[in-house]
């Protein structure tokens, strides 16, 4: 316990990042108790009220209570990010192991696709996919659309990591003592990669949230859902900035900044844990 505390004192970014994410979690949970989530629908309350005791975050032009929108929408945005991120890292890990452990033509193809895919601006490909789906997207479809490109980066980075690991002595010994390929991957390589995989996952979640918010701001998101990105879409759609309705964009902007900062600091912290050599230079 004391060792853990001492570690946290040294790895401040992990603490700061986790604190931010926990704060958001608390906001969502407590929020569900003190506000009626139904008020996140249009025409529930008086439109365009600045923040007051009754509506701490104000209300928007369509008559939504913005506090309710944030309480209901933040988990939806996180849900998109986590589904897409987990799918991306899952697929990416499998492909990376196949490519890096077995090499050969599989490696050439997988690496080629990942390298080319990464130079293409992802948002534009996602736009083409989203536009092709008739009748708008639901929150979960949105996550799948984002996941369709979310595996590229994990594949590339994990592959590089596996390539360096497979040359280590203990892998060599396992191979010489007759361990099978899959067994080496699961029993020898995986445990050593776990902290690194965790950092990759957090990174992928953050990237997926960014991509989903991008699609939503462009008007390709789930129109009825109160996600953070859709709120920003309405902000832009109604020109809230020029009209001086500052509270409308302030709430979603603050929460999105908290999400990204939290995820970023957690990644930095996990990186430090996964790769202690960073400690010297930090």
């Amino acid at each position: 316990m004391q060792g853990l505390l001492r570690y946290f004192r040294r790895n401040l970014s992990l603490v700061v990042g986790s604190a931010m994410l926990l704060f958001l979690l608390a906001f969502i949970v407590i929020g569900h108790f003190i506000v009626d989530v139904e008020d996140a629908r249009a025409l529930s309350v008086r439109p365009l009220q600045p923040p007051s005791w009754r509506y701490p975050f104000g209300t928007d032009r369509q008559g939504r209570d913005l506090l309710a929108v944030m309480v209901a929408g933040t988990p939806l945005t996180l849900q998109i990010g986590f589904i897409a991120g987990i799918l991306g890292v899952g697929i990416g890990t499998v492909l990376a192991f196949v490519a890096a452990y077995y090499r050969g033509w599989a490696d050439t193809i997988i690496r080629g696709i990942a390298d080319i895919g990464l130079t293409v601006p992802g948002l534009l490909v996602l736009i083409i996919i989203a536009v092709g789906i008739p009748g708008g997207l639901s929150v979960n479809q949105m996550a799948l659309v984002v996941a369709s490109l979310a595996w590229l980066n994990p594949t590339r980075t994990i592959r590089a990591q596996v390539l360096s690991l497979r040359e280590r002595g203990y892998v060599e010994i396992a191979r010489m003592s007759g361990m099978s390929g899959p067994a080496i991957i699961v029993l020898e390589l995986m445990p050593n990669l776990l902290p690194y995989l965790a950092a990759t996952l957090v990174n992928a979640v953050s990237g997926a949230i960014l991509a989903s918010i991008g699609l939503e701001v462009l008007g390709l998101g789930p129109i009825d859902a109160p996600t953070l990105g859709m709120t920003l879409y309405w902000v832009n759609f109604n020109a809230a900035m020029i009209n001086g309705w500052w509270w409308w964009w302030l709430a979603p902007t603050t929460i999105i900044v908290l999400v990204f900062l939290g995820l970023f600091f957690v990644t930095v912290g996990l990186d430090e844990y996964a790769n202690p050599r960073l400690r010297r230079s930090a």
Partner: peptide, 13 residues
């Protein structure tokens, strides 16, 4: 060279 695509995606918004 690798980041150009990402920069562009962000600049669109």
């Amino acid at each position: 060279a690798l980041a150009l695509g990402q920069i562009l995606s962000g600049a669109v918004l």
